[in-house]
Design a protein around this nucleic acid. Sequence first.
DNA 1: CGAGCCGTTGAGGGGATTCAAGCTCAGTGG
DNA 2: CCACTGAGCTTGAATCCCCTCAACGGCTCG
Lengths: 246, 246
Amino acid sequence: MDTRTNAIPIYRQDGAHPQALACAACEVRSQALFGVLDDSGLDRIHTQIASVTLHPDAPVYDRGTAGLAVFTIREGLVRFERSSEHGDRRIVRIAGRGDLIGQEALLNRPYGDDAVACTEVQLCRIPRALIDQLAQGRDELPRELMLRWQRALDAAEAWVSDLSTGPARRRLLYLLRRLAEHAGADDTIWLPRREEIGAMLDMTIETASRLVSALRREGVLTLLPGRSAVLDRGALRKALLAEGAA
Amino acid sequence: MDTRTNAIPIYRQDGAHPQALACAACEVRSQALFGVLDDSGLDRIHTQIASVTLHPDAPVYDRGTAGLAVFTIREGLVRFERSSEHGDRRIVRIAGRGDLIGQEALLNRPYGDDAVACTEVQLCRIPRALIDQLAQGRDELPRELMLRWQRALDAAEAWVSDLSTGPARRRLLYLLRRLAEHAGADDTIWLPRREEIGAMLDMTIETASRLVSALRREGVLTLLPGRSAVLDRGALRKALLAEGAA
DNA sequence: CGAGCCGTTGAGGGGATTCAAGCTCAGTGG
DNA sequence: CCACTGAGCTTGAATCCCCTCAACGGCTCG
């Protein structure tokens, strides 16, 4: 389901605080955490919400840090990394537009992963205290939070079953299908560095390179300058069908 | 941390309903979901809670089913499976004593995995309606639920980074370390069938068999009849150290 | 007792890694 | 202007880990 829309929904345009306008006109508000809040609720909060812009490979937060805020992704992709005791790091999940990240902070827990920007990323930083305050009385917010936790759990388990199972080529095809869910206009996807593909799928950069090259030759991918590519969804589907007996 | 205790904590022994006694004397109550409830809260609920006992390989619930209840694991191990479009199934997580499973049901969502008993399992079946009712007013219960969601998320991500990364032998060693957390007396662990090890670590039963045999010869494992084994924690630690440069 | 499940072990092949070389491209400074 | 450098990507050759195919043994159960 492609929930992206180019038309910006109009909620409230008469706020005084600069962030009020930003919140009111937020493209992802309806699908984001505060979609459950009405305008009066929204009015009280924007002064505490900060907009953050990050460049690729910039950290959002580090594992082990005592978290004071959660973040809503307004634009871009964020990856979650863990490094094992053996020094090698593994990407265990990604999150995109509309997703809430860093929820551990709400429970007074340190962040569980390193969160890093994949692309140019725009975030809303929401202090824990604000969530606590809003959760008093209202019943929708806790439920909304639980929904997001469940979504993250589902994504993590799917990462095991899809992206960590089977031969390398099939894992890569699944990864492309997942990246396609965050595709921009014209089926342009963010194509990770080979080293990142390796960390996502547990393979070497050489293997990742060989497989990407093969898919390029097969017409599934058309590489563009700057870590992006055009994906032929039909060819991808065909390749996935050819992969298994499904 | 070994939270197991043989002494049964005494909370209330004067209940009239048969389930009241069970709840009051529950070994895992303090660490389980209703640890936050006081006795008066407990009094209202036991009539709705059913005790369930399952044999190994018996399903707890099936993926896609509309869930009407969550379950607390009072004893035993439960595994979560997903089968990909290619027919092969993968175990994506396990849960043990004190864990809450099937939380999707609270959000009106179908269960996300097949949940299957690994060992002999004792569960408390808690209807969704009961949770909804208890969540009204009380603030501790939603928080407790979120905590459990976060724990599950953490376990799922660790499953990626530990049990789905690196060479087969190392993955097996990590699995043993994890199973050791649910060890019984005398470091006796539940040792999965070779086929299950394969589904957990994405390897064939032959590879699993070879590696288990090797660990047996090295003294890390001592096989017992009936899917259990004694684990030499020191030898395991040594093997893990030898595995990487950690 | 034969059938079937589960585990073990061997032999051979294949897929992924390792080691290595060479490429493009952006940034730097002579 | 262009050599120089380093990062990222690609490709080849050799090796190795794991899979595949196969045979066999122990065990339970009809």
